[in-house]
Design a protein around this nucleic acid. Structure first.
Lengths: 343, 343
DNA sequence: ACCGAGCACTTAACCGATTAACTAGATTAT
DNA sequence: ATAATCTAGTTAATCGGTTAAGTGCTCGGT
């Protein structure tokens, strides 16, 4: 059987030979280090172009870094299909590309996240990791820190975590959303929040609470429901709120997913969203614009967050000063699930 | 400023020294090559465990391959958020992991897909690529083949493409779906198909046509609409069908996305899906179970396809015989959008 | 008793880059 | 005029593995 051999690509030696210089000179030209006359530089670059030379990545990363960022997919990776994660990944990938980095996906259901991460880092395959859904006292972060592995997390830089944490300005967003509900006349406002393990959940709570206390009101504990992350969790949470003697007239949900669940619960209870009860979600996933009625929600710049994560992690890897990061602002997209307080 | 130096990891030299052997012996033990006594093997493995030694990836891939598969994200990468792609990626990642491979994501909006791919391959960063949405006479495949870069595509192995193409058994699926519509009494059945550039579109058409011709009927050209891939495209296609003097009583859509659009169009036209008109989608994305009414659709094993792609590409890379591939069967999930022909 | 083969290793070349150390020639300083 | 410095390169060490070639040693065959 004739099997075509893999094509041989040009090496730095080929370039050096053809340009009549040493490999060191070629390297100097390509990296802008050393001192080279304009004429020599020209000649080398000419040959590089002719041979379409590109330095071998393995050889390069032996001397320095691998210019690769790692991302561990959550169990089952079904969550990759959530627009939230998908756009984040897109932002990561693009921003990384701008710095000559690439994104390595890992997600071995057999091994633990920790094992995969340390293996990837110890073998020099990746320079650092992005941790999704940063938690309070995150074990993963502690593990990586202990192993000397650089990483950044998606979420608030919380106590117990030594890594930089980047997130949206959920506090500002929640404040804005809750204020807008108050402006519409609502006074019995509930919050369906994320699990309290997630660092993001407190951010949201702070904004929500501030909007109430700034007008001298108290936060009713029964109106704060800690839910999971799924649509079903949102449904359950809403049912819990409706079961109370005096239920809320407005609800802020910590994610669109939760809001969708809440919409289901309301519909099942015969309550019309956007007329009887106001509802605001968070995230603005594509589907939010196409529910019935379309969901009022806080738009989150997911792609920008991905880019910010990439920048921060790369700065960490290259030992440059970390770029200053201000939580990315959310934008209130008013659709049809918000309404003035019914008289 | 005190900045902790990166932790030094054990090298093969450390292992060799500690075990009192040469590095070659360590390498032989770890790779199962060469001949080593049981005692020596024991000792080496012992030390490997003690030092938690893992071979440096860069050094390794200089002599062989990089054990990395490349995937180029579609423009803007918004499509990653489609469950279809997300699950495929998950399947790819997992199956790759089982062979010691990882998935490298690329998606540089600045450079062309071709440029990124050749660069990644020439620098030895990846061993091969997965091409999404394989097209008839796919330019990308031609480019990669010309550059001697291994790759597999998602789609039918079509004319003009030298690479293996893996897909679902869309022909069988369309046949099954269309037959089921006939069994329900429908005779005026339409097909909203994918763009004809996609190799998958013909597969679907073949099954659809067979279901009609096998009972001696003719395929009405006006009932075959070539649409795009978006929900809006599905909407437009359905409107086109409805505009005909005698519209279809049943519709097969080539994707759930298209089916959702068709549902919108039907609803807008005051036609009740699942009573007046039957509709079958393809893919069974999670949302399909939650539309009103829930969508009858062909369930596609996306994760399995991802795994098959990984296996095939890795076999290609390692010059092993390609695993035989039978198109992955679809399963008809009957929900509420199908109905007998109204009398 | 001697040769060849096989075993269990070691030695060293090699993969393709980066970079510290060196060198020859030109320029500047004293 | 001569030493010191600078420029534009080269040579060679190095990163951490893999692997072809080499080296004693034991064993079997004749």
């Amino acid at each position: 059987m004739v099997r075509r051999r893999r094509r041989k690509v040009a090496t730095i030696k080929d370039v050096a030979e053809r340009a009549g210089v040493s490999t060191a000179t070629v390297s100097y030209v390509l990296n802008g280090t050393g001192s080279v006359t304009a004429a020599t530089r020209q000649r080398v670059l000419q040959v590089v172009a002719e041979l379409e030379y590109q330095p071998n990545h393995a050889a390069r990363s032996m001397r320095s870094r691998s210019r690769t960022l790692g991302l561990i997919l959550p169990y089952g990776a079904a969550e990759l299909s959530t627009p939230t994660l998908a756009e984040l990944v897109a932002g990561l990938t693009e921003a990384a590309a701008n710095h000559g980095y690439y994104l390595l996906l890992a997600g071995d259901p057999g091994k633990s996240e920790r094992l995969v991460a340390t293996s990837l880092a110890r073998t020099g395959r990746v320079d650092g990791f992005v941790l999704l859904d940063l938690q309070v006292d995150d074990e993963r972060s502690a593990d990586l820190t202990a192993a000397g592995i650089l990483h950044v997390g998606v979420g608030a830089p919380a106590s117990g975590n030594a890594c930089p944490g980047l997130s949206f300005d959920l506090t500002g967003g929640a404040l804005m959303a809750t204020r807008s509900l108050r402006t519409l006349g609502h006074r019995r406002i509930a919050l369906i929040n994320l699990p309290s393990e997630l660092t993001d959940s407190d951010l949201l709570y702070q904004g929500f609470a501030k909007a109430l206390t700034e007008t001298g009101e108290e936060v009713a504990p029964s109106f704060i429901v800690e839910a999971g992350t799924s649509q079903d969790d949102g449904l359950a949470a809403m049912q819990e709120l409706l079961a109370q003697p005096e239920g809320p007239t407005a609800v802020l949900a910590a994610s669109d997913e939760l809001a969708f669940g809440a919409m289901h619960a309301l519909r099942d209870a015969g309550i019309e969203v956007g007329r009887d009860v106001a509802l605001i979600g968070c995230g603005d996933v594509p589907l939010a614009a196409h529910t019935h009625p379309p969901l009022t929600t806080l738009r989150a710049p997911r792609r920008a967050l991905g880019a910010a994560l990439a920048h921060t992690l790369i700065a960490l890897v290259e030992q440059q000063p970390l770029p200053s990061f201000t939580p990315l602002p959310l934008q209130l997209i008013v659709r049809k699930t918000t309404c003035p307080l019914p008289e």
